[in-house]
């Protein structure tokens, strides 16, 4: 399997004008160009009025949930 770095992308879409912008999926790609191609060709179930892909690492976290379980190997 290739060693090229795989970036996590999130996909947001809006079905019709006035609808909420919602996350409909996520996938991995090596660059923005490939992410756009994947999004257009995989998520073609609707004629979306808007579609955005964003690298997951671009999300700015303000609050995240506490872990439910101890991590393995952590004392």
């Amino acid at each position: 399997m290739t060693e090229t770095k795989q970036i996590d992308y999130l996909l947001f879409t809006r079905i019709k004008r006035g609808d909420d912008l919602i996350q409909v999926g996520s996938f991995k790609a090596t660059c923005d160009d490939l992410a756009k191609i994947y999004a257009e060709h995989i998520y073609d179930e609707e004629d979306w009025v808007e579609m955005y892909v964003v690298p997951k690492e671009s999300l700015i976290c303000l609050r995240s949930p506490e872990p439910l379980f101890k991590k393995e190997g952590v004392n």
């Binding site: 290739t2 060693e3 090229t4 191609i37």
Partner: peptide, 10 residues
């Protein structure tokens, strides 16, 4: 893009 991945593969 896939060509580039294959060129940089192992």
């Amino acid at each position: 893009v896939w060509c580039k991945q294959l060129l940089n593969d192992q």
